[in-house]
Amino acid sequence: MKFLQSLENVVTPANGIAATVGVFLTPIFQYLYGTGRFDILIVLFLMISLDWITGISAAKKDHTYSSDYGLSRIPRSLFLFALPAVANLLDRVMGTPGFLFYGVTFGLLYHTWNSLTANAHRAGWPVPKSVVNLVGSEIKAKTERAARKEQI
């Protein structure tokens, strides 16, 4: 009887809705991105999230933040999440399992790492000097872009 009472907390409408959504979305997710790729996509999601956080902090520090600019980053982020799906579908068409998917995904990870590291440096967060040297050109480009925005 105690076991059945504990199920009252599990069998709820919210859990039922979540399970139903999961049943329909999981095959779509696997079709778009392939199976066994959840970890690398989580890394990509986290890095894009960190890029947003560091970018907002850097823009607020140099007084170039605007909600219009922030909102324009949403389509960019959706585009970044769509590229690995397109690469996976091309892999399936061409019969190259994972070649394009991993190439595109690691390219995006590298690009996003450069961006978030440069943003963190611009925000004044502690970034090792050796890492700053690696992303120096990205820091310069972001600093120049912020200076142009200030003049407008």
Rank of each mutant, 00 (worst) to 15 (best):
R148S: 08
Y102M: 09
D68G: 12
L46K: 05
K140V: 06
K61E: 14
R122A: 04
L108R: 08
T117P: 02
I17E: 01
Y65S: 09
W125Y: 12
V21H: 05
A147P: 03
A141I: 05
K61A: 13
L90Q: 02
L108P: 07
L32V: 07
A87K: 01
T20A: 15
V10N: 06
D62K: 07
G124F: 02
T35G: 11
V132M: 12
A18H: 00
A146F: 11
F81Q: 00
V104W: 04
N9Q: 11
G98P: 10
H121T: 14
T143Y: 08
K149V: 07
W113R: 04
R122K: 04
A59G: 11
I139W: 10
F45N: 06
G98S: 10
S49Q: 08
K60Q: 13
T117I: 07
I40S: 01
N15C: 03
P97E: 06
K142E: 13
I40C: 00
N133A: 15
Q5M: 11
G136R: 12
I152V: 10
G98L: 10
P84S: 05
L50P: 00
P126A: 08
I53E: 09
Y110E: 02
R145T: 13
L50N: 08
Y31M: 11
D91A: 07
F29D: 08
L41V: 00
D68M: 04
L108M: 09
S137P: 03
V11F: 15
S57I: 11
L44C: 01
G36Q: 02
N88G: 05
P97F: 02
T54F: 14
I74H: 01
G36M: 03
T112Y: 12
M47P: 00
R92I: 08
T143W: 05
T20L: 15
L78I: 15
Y110A: 14
L83P: 04
A147E: 15
K61G: 09
A14H: 09
M94C: 03
K2R: 15
V131G: 01
A19M: 14
S49D: 04
L50S: 07
L100P: 02
V43L: 13
I48E: 12
I48H: 05
F3H: 02
T20Q: 07
H111M: 08
L32W: 10
R73V: 07
P126C: 00
D62S: 10
S67Q: 14
L4K: 12
T96E: 09
L50V: 12
K149D: 03
T54I: 03
T105M: 04
P27V: 10
Y102N: 11
Q30E: 11
E144H: 04
L83V: 04
S6Y: 03
F99K: 11
S137H: 10
T143D: 15
A141H: 10
L44D: 01
A141Y: 07
I40E: 01
G98N: 08
L78K: 03
V132L: 06
F24V: 15
L50H: 02
A147F: 06
N9C: 03
W52P: 00
R92W: 06
I28M: 11
